[in-house]
Design a protein around this nucleic acid. Structure first.
Lengths: 347, 347
DNA sequence: TTGTACGCGTTATCAT
DNA sequence: ATGATAACGCGTACAA
């Protein structure tokens, strides 16, 4: 059996409650006693039992993390290690730990969340994604446990604390950047429409076109998964159009990488034949050929701020709901140029 | 206050201990009583309190995860989401949860591990990496908490349960594959030598050369970080040699991607001018130009088996130490060919 | 088959 | 400034 507060008390000749107060560094204990107790702790190499502490204080000092289905392709996205890093750092700074649930099916994940919330394993929860219809979000709202979502909630935006980028504006600006370059045949390659971020980006794209009186063309809007295969199919569809686009807004770097490959296979050169902008600016966006022009959404900060504001909510239950918008920045690399009429390809 | 076992007991007209037994599905309770109690639980929507349960039973049903420093480039490697997925699935199947620690410095991580172990937050630990000198590993051995490491321990291999690939053999085979293709100027581009996996792969490479009486050349061995910048520098160094290699064994896909880029920039074509094999076969290895010939090490299984055997150790403290070797497979894609004397480049 | 009573290691309340 | 003592919610030996 491990050494407990009682052992320390005995050795230091004080009551267990005194030891407890020393741990909490209560000002009502004399320096002399504190010293004595600390020495005893040192000597026995005492470490407080978190479980017992949690039970007594009704707080676990840990944050629950809800990921999308582990089998989902999205999970493979380098986005996650990075948010995790931010989350981890934000939590660590305030001495909070991280508890994870995942699962293969949505049902499994849901059960996991219920367990950890009702089971009192965590003091709060962060949802690492935002989907259109989400049982888990609904559940979280029905309990009175603090939680924050990373991404924009599909509904009740005003009532849910969340950390997000202004994806609408970002995509609008990026599209306008292409328009400014002279493009007027711009396509949108989006991911899974169940994720709110896809919707926001699509809306931003459409808004830009409308503002500049460029007709929307349904054939120019393709939705696929965030990953490779998606990108490939999307490109083939797009380029088999009678008038193929001269520029692409791609919702994710990984997908853009797939696009780049397909293009290369087809002998189409970027950016001379077709321009591309994408999102997230993950590590490999600078490792592609050519390096991707991509919107840096500061993934780390998304996680970091989520952790920080969740902890605030935990500590102060009356904390108002907040919306935290993380800035973004277009990183211009080598996938965008003026449209080149001469080289326009017909497939 | 949440609904407890007592509330259920009251409603069902039984003692709290009976409820507890129903939860544990004790055979000593009559079906009738079980039914009655379960109805009461349902009605009150009771959920057992994990913390209290943990305290009473002295087991948390959670596994602690130790990652490398979050700031380390390695953390960005797609390797991690994938092991995490395996770990998660293995744990989930046995109803275990996952608790994470990370930190910016090694010191922070170390403290985190001590907290979670001594604090009794977890029943066991899995080390997600294997380094040459590791305070954390030493600490874990000094405690009597079950733990398993993913990768090969640097020393005391026989005494530490671990899950690994046979990286030595894999690299040897892969090098022989290149030799079989006709290459005899083969370089090795490895990652951080503090990671045991790097060492193993280097050793396998050297062994292959020796077995085939190809002289080892120190200039042909380059160590850099696993990531991009590393790859680039390595390539420049290598190709500035008087007789540059015609083939490269690269220790990691991400790094190989960097290599590919630099080569492309230098106008060197793969595989005609130089052949490349790499490791891990992460998603983007098929997304590169050309798609990478890479050793699939079954990352998911690494995590899955680690979780499974850790849980066995937790349940059965007398479980012998084990070494679990996960198979690998060379996935041949388009970065290897016979050496082409004609096209050999001099830089 | 079920109930009683105590312990798990803390924190918190109330005395002193 | 410090010490008893009662929770916290559950598991379990022992009793009935």
């Amino acid at each position: 059996m491990a050494v407990t507060i009682k052992d320390v008390a005995k050795l230091a000749n004080v009551a267990p409650s005194t030891v407890s107060r020393v741990i909490a560094n209560s000002p009502r204990i004399s320096e002399k006693t504190k010293q004595k107790v600390r020495e005893a702790m040192e000597q026995l190499s005492y470490h407080p039992n978190f479980i017992a502490r949690s039970l007594a204080s009704q707080s676990t000092q840990t944050i629950g993390l809800v990921m999308p289905s582990a089998t989902d392709v999205v999970f493979q996205n380098p986005f996650f290690p990075t948010v995790l890093r931010g989350l981890s750092e934000g939590a660590h700074e305030k001495q909070y730990g991280l508890y994870m649930t995942t699962g293969k099916t949505d049902e499994e994940i849901y059960d996991g969340v219920v367990q950890m919330v009702q089971g009192g394993r965590v003091d709060g929860v962060v949802l690492l994604y935002s989907k259109v219809e989400d049982k888990i979000l609904t559940y979280l709202q029905s309990q009175d446990i603090p939680f924050v979502v990373i991404g924009k909630p599909f509904k009740n935006v005003e009532e849910i604390t969340h950390v997000d980028n202004d994806n609408f504006r970002a995509t609008k600006e990026v599209t306008e950047y292409l328009i400014g370059l002279g493009h007027d045949h711009i396509a949108f390659v989006g991911g899974n429409l169940n994720f709110v971020v896809t919707i926001e980006r699509l809306l931003g794209y459409e808004k830009a076109l409308r503002d500049h009186h460029i007709p929307l063309n349904n054939d120019y809007i393709v939705h696929e998964q965030f990953l490779k295969e998606g990108g490939q199919e999307a490109v083939r569809e797009l380029l088999s159009l009678s008038t193929p686009p001269t520029a692409l807004v791609v919702a994710d770097d990984l997908m853009a990488l797939g696009v780049l490959n397909t293009l290369d296979e087809m002998g189409i050169v970027v950016p001379e034949d077709i321009s591309i902008v994408s999102f997230n600016n993950v590590l490999l966006s600078e490792m592609s050929r050519p390096p991707l022009t991509s919107v840096d959404i500061n993934i780390f900060d998304l996680g970091y701020e989520a952790a920080k504001s969740l902890i605030q909510m935990i500590k102060n239950p009356k904390e108002p709901t907040k919306r935290i918008i993380i800035p973004y920045e277009l990183i211009k690399r080598y996938t965008c140029s003026h449209p080149n009429i001469e080289r326009t390809v017909q497939v």
